[in-house]
């Protein structure tokens, strides 16, 4: 460093820079956080899901809120898992054009297979394992995953070749390249992919929570406690007030999420976009 001209600048930078130096620290920032969230919210979900959906017969704000909370946690868990799985899958695609040629059609086929066709098998598998909650989370996770994967793959293609070349010339490789160049580059695509994934997730909640329709001789007691199963329960028992209350609650939450999370993230992600 001694070869630099004598520093006689008068500039003072006030920001604090924290650059994690070890790989584990870097990985923790992106993988550990969703993992901790998955475990934490999974625990809360276990407590909430002990309530039976058929116990909710009137417009009771407490029960509806709990049900909405349970559903939201399922979506959150599935989303966390989607992020954890999507990033390695996308990095795998990014290894080389040959790997991409091989994997993308494979992903396309897997995505195109209607997951609901396998849902009864998935339910039986998780019930046999004593973990029916897992069936719902798994089905939402699969429906979210591909939105994020394909958005990120599309995002990687927008990284300018000059940016990749600059990283190489300046010796930014390995984890530093991943965390300082690639992931920030695809951040806008992660946001749009996440938005689509959540929309897909909300679509899936009714199917994912009403398990009994897929089980031979199943009853509503086997349904998971959540706002999706309450919607179906209200509909089949012709409880219009409960149905309207449940659907209104979903609309309010989706609108709030859109306003307070997605719109802000979309705006924030603009700064990561290449011109």
């Amino acid at each position: 460093m001694a070869r630099h001209p004598a520093g006689k600048h008068r500039y003072h930078h006030h920001s604090e820079f924290t650059y994690p130096t070890s790989l584990s620290q870097r990985l923790s920032s992106i993988f550990l956080l969703p993992l901790v969230a998955v475990l934490f919210f999974g625990g809360i979900l276990m407590i909430l899901s002990h309530t039976s959906v058929i116990a909710v017969n009137s417009v009771d704000f407490g029960s509806l809120s709990s049900a909405l909370g349970a559903t939201f946690l399922r979506l959150l868990l599935a989303y966390g898992l989607s992020i954890i799985f999507a990033i390695p899958l996308v990095l795998l695609v990014n290894i080389s054009p040959r790997v991409e040629t091989l994997l993308l059609p494979l992903f396309d086929i897997i995505e195109s297979v209607p997951i609901l066709a396998f849902f009864p098998v998935v339910i039986l598998f998780f019930i046999a394992a004593g973990f029916s909650e897992g069936a719902a989370v798994f089905i939402i996770f699969i429906s979210m995953l591909w939105n994020i994967v394909f958005s990120l793959v599309g995002g990687l293609k927008t990284v300018p070749t000059d940016i990749k070349a600059a990283a190489r010339v300046f010796g930014v490789r390995g984890p530093a390249y991943l965390f300082k160049v690639l992931l920030p580059s695809v951040f806008p695509y992660l946001v749009t992919g996440s938005l689509l994934a959540w929309a897909q997730g909300w679509n899936m909640i009714i199917v994912a929570e009403v398990l009994h329709t897929y089980l031979p001789g199943g009853t509503e007691r086997q349904d998971l406690f959540g706002i999706g199963s309450i919607l179906v329960h209200a509909s089949t028992s012709e409880n219009t007030a409960l149905f309207i209350a449940a659907i209104s609650l979903i609309i309010v939450v989706i609108a709030l999420m859109n306003f307070f999370i997605w719109q802000k993230l979309l705006k924030y992600s603009e700064r990561f976009r290449f011109e």
Binding site: A165, A166, V169, F170, P184, F272, R273, F274
Partner: peptide, 28 residues
Amino acid sequence: AMVFQSGALLPWLSVYDNIAFGLRAKAA
């Protein structure tokens, strides 16, 4: 070191951090 036709600057980094980009990689 190279200066690119397009600039090849990272849009999410401030001017300060863009200048320090290669320096930090070298330091690491």
